[in-house]
Design a protein around this nucleic acid. Structure first.
Lengths: 66, 66
DNA sequence: ACTAAAAGTATAATATATTTTACATAAAGC
DNA sequence: GCTTTATGTAAAATATATTATACTTTTAGT
């Protein structure tokens, strides 16, 4: 599993903390997702999708073995 | 939050058990998601997305208050 | 080099998702 | 009515996501 959160966040010129606030989650959650420590819930993935204007499928990419 | 799993499953003429097997989860998980007891993980949502040929966003729809 | 802001990391606590087992109900065919 | 298959439901156990607190490291500006 791979994701583009860090890149999309950079496009919007947001810090992890700003993104966390916009999504009503903690900064650690954003950091953990960017560092691939775990996947977000579908709810959070959909909120990110809305915020970045991309589908969940575009933000989170399945890889071999997932 | 709303989802179209039951309808898409019907289109494919699959039982909950068949869908569960195809996705490597338990039948109860499928049932619980269809009955909106909880949301799947993003991993499972993406697998469903692949199987049905729809984006996660098309399968799971945010509503007011989510 | 100093400072401040941002990002990374760790651990424990809580919340949510998933499994397993088991039983109850609904629908369909015979 | 009986049987079978599909669906609904429940409780306990496990796995995973999220939070809170706190500390370290990196980065950028001065």
């Amino acid at each position: 599993m791979k994701n583009n959160i860090k890149v999309e966040r950079a496009k919007k010129d947001m810090t992890q903390e700003q993104l966390a606030e916009a999504l009503c989650v903690s900064r650690q959650t954003i950091n953990a997702i960017e560092k691939n420590k775990y996947l977000p819930s579908t709810l959070l993935a959909l909120k990110m999708s809305n915020l970045f204007g991309l589908t969940v499928n575009e933000l989170f990419i399945l890889e071999e073995g997932d």
